[in-house]
Design a protein around this nucleic acid. Structure first.
Lengths: 168, 168
DNA sequence: GTGCAAACATTGCATAATGCAATTAGAGGG
DNA sequence: CCCTCTAATTGCATTATGCAATGTTTGCAC
């Protein structure tokens, strides 16, 4: 981990962990409100599925379940409901008839776009309230953070505003 | 919001929004992995309840439900299960016998501590992989972000996550 | 080309989470 | 005492979830 670092770096790391945890509360709250604000009442898992289908393109059921980290049977029933709601489209792979090809419909993508726009608007509002001289540093710091994490295989599908355990 | 700012500040804000959104993906993924790694036979909502009871001290049922942003009936049944699992303690308020006083047991607090430690370890690992010269700026930037958000009354209880009425 | 194992989707079953609408129990004011 | 308000609880329906079959199709070995 970090056992090769001098003590002052450990202190800086601890301080940053605290800052990250605090900022996380804000981000979680923003994500939750963005989802709650739209007209189409979607559950959090349903929205996560739509995000995966919208950003990742057509996938089969097993692949979708893996990206959502749920059991294939769970994913199947969610697909059933979202399909009935006209937000997800099912088709059969002509090459391999075992496979089911899943994709978001225009309506489903529209919902994802609405929530995303609202979330970005909320973040923009917060960022606009920050002192200007902090913004450049924040951009660099957050990008460095994402890069450092990216080297550890972060799963992008987790980005959905999932209700979180305890970011307290 | 920011309509009094020059264009270049708008650009900086947009760039920061992108950085924040990307970083939030990382944070959500980290939290999900931290909880999955423990897996003390606890669901995510159960863990959230334990965190609230652990960090916030004794509360009544309605207050607990509000902090979790769920219906009191939902909170009640979760309390039933966690109580049966020996992680939550029920008592009656002697002053007002309508009120139920809820608190985490030692076992419940132990679970919260385990997951919290693991989550902080994950963040520490990522932070340790960041260039040292970015850390100070990140701390300041994240704190400024949290302050800016705090002045807008972030309310986690706004989220309900109810599904569409007639889906089946 | 037959047959078998592997991959996939699906169904059956059980439990948890969730909200809304009663219903019960207690507190407080008149 | 009665009325109202609050808090907890229960009844009912829907969604989310995982594990364990079952069925279906594919690919491969022989």
């Amino acid at each position: 981990m970090h056992d090769s670092q001098p003590p002052q770096d450990l202190d800086a790391a601890n301080e940053m962990v605290a800052a990250v945890v605090t900022a996380s509360r804000v981000l979680v709250a923003v994500s939750a409100r963005s989802l709650a604000a739209i007209e189409e009442a979607l559950t959090v898992p349903q929205f996560r599925m739509l995000v995966v289908l919208d950003t990742g393109g057509p996938v089969n059921l097993t692949g979708l379940a893996e990206q959502l980290a749920v059991n294939p049977s769970t994913a199947l029933r969610m697909v059933d409901r979202l399909s009935a709601a006209g937000m997800v489209e099912r088709a059969h792979d002509p090459g391999d008839r075992r496979l089911v090809v899943l994709a978001a419909t225009a309506a489903g993508r529209q919902v994802v776009r609405q929530v995303t726009e609202r979330r970005q608007a909320e973040i923009t509002r917060i960022v606009s309230a920050m002192p200007v001289d902090h913004r450049g540093a924040m951009i660099e710091a957050l990008e460095a953070f994402a890069r450092a994490a990216g080297e550890e295989q972060i799963n992008p599908a987790a980005y959905t505003g999932q209700a979180l355990p305890g970011w307290s």
